[in-house]
């Protein structure tokens, strides 16, 4: 049943003013799904997330989160934004950042309950960040900060996790560490959708792959298709060898495209 899908998007068109950013997008996120959406910068990936989160009103089409519109369905979603959005000089420690994820449950009450503090403890243990709780965010490495943001997204026990460029500023070791956490999250039944412009950073654990560049092409397997290459990278498919460390003669390249295989 469509209404039971974590996310169901039908004929979505979104734009800013007269400029259309997403053109007639249809997409489903299934239960236990692990979907990666790749595509160039400016292709509309973040706009798609903002539409799902109810931050942008679509021009046309519908978004349903477990059958509900984004305004109410957003409670099922844990969202991990790009790290570059944050001012790391902000005086805040790890525990306070994670507690923010409980605001939707806390409501207008000016303090967190004992139960909510226990939920934060569970999220910190789950992401192995308990030892960092009193550290200021400026003292964290990129990988540690990513785990903190994942903990914040998970603390309210969402059924869906959305991640915006989760590995863009991480070295390979930290990237693998982040994906280990996501693998555990997905195996615990949480549907994951992540977006990235860097094909080389996609996890082996991704179950499906989609490519977005204003339009969307989706594959039910974690493999690049000719349509995706043509849409996302404007290359004739023959020029981009997916199976090896290929470099496209038209200028776009990726060193680890084999990862998505």
């Amino acid at each position: 049943m469509t209404s039971e899908l974590p996310i169901s998007i039908e004929n979505l068109t979104v734009g800013y003013g007269s400029e259309v950013i997403l053109n007639d997008i249809s997409l489903e996120l299934r239960n236990d799904d692990f979907l990666a959406i790749i595509g160039p910068n400016g292709g509309g990936k973040t706009t798609l997330f903002r539409s799902i989160l109810g931050l942008i009103e679509p021009m046309n089409g519908t978004i349903r989160i477990y059958g509900e519109p984004p305004a109410t369905g957003v409670k099922h979603i844990g969202y991990v934004p790009q790290q570059s959005m944050f001012d790391l000089r902000y005086p805040i420690n790890v525990e306070s950042v994670i507690m923010m994820g409980l605001r939707i449950h806390k409501g207008l009450r000016p303090f967190y309950s004992k139960e909510e503090k226990e939920m934060a403890e569970v999220a910190m243990e789950y992401t192995d960040t308990t030892d960092l709780r009193s550290k200021r965010i400026s003292a964290l490495s990129g990988g540690q900060l990513q785990r903190i943001l994942i903990a914040r997204a998970l603390v309210s026990k969402p059924k869906i996790l959305l991640l915006d460029e989760p590995t863009s500023s991480l070295d390979p070791a930290m990237r693998d560490c982040t994906y280990d956490v996501l693998k555990k999250v997905n195996s615990d039944g949480i549907a994951i959708m992540l977006i990235t412009h860097d094909m080389g950073s996609i996890s082996h654990d991704v179950k499906r792959l989609a490519c977005m560049n204003r339009r969307l092409v989706c594959n039910d397997r974690p493999e690049l298709t000719d349509d995706m290459i043509s849409l996302g990278f404007h290359c004739p498919p023959g020029l981009l060898k997916v199976s090896d460390n290929a470099k496209c003669s038209c200028g776009c390249h990726d060193n680890n495209q084999g990862d998505v295989q």
């Binding site: 989160l53 934004p81 959005m85 001012d87 605001r103 939707i104 806390k106 000016p110």
Partner: peptide
């Protein structure tokens, strides 16, 4: 009264919006 909400607003406005 509004300390937590002001902290969220000034740290991460997007998170404030999706937190109702």
């Amino acid at each position: 009264l509004l300390f937590e909400d002001l902290q969220i607003l000034t740290f991460d406005e997007i998170h404030a919006k999706i937190s109702n």
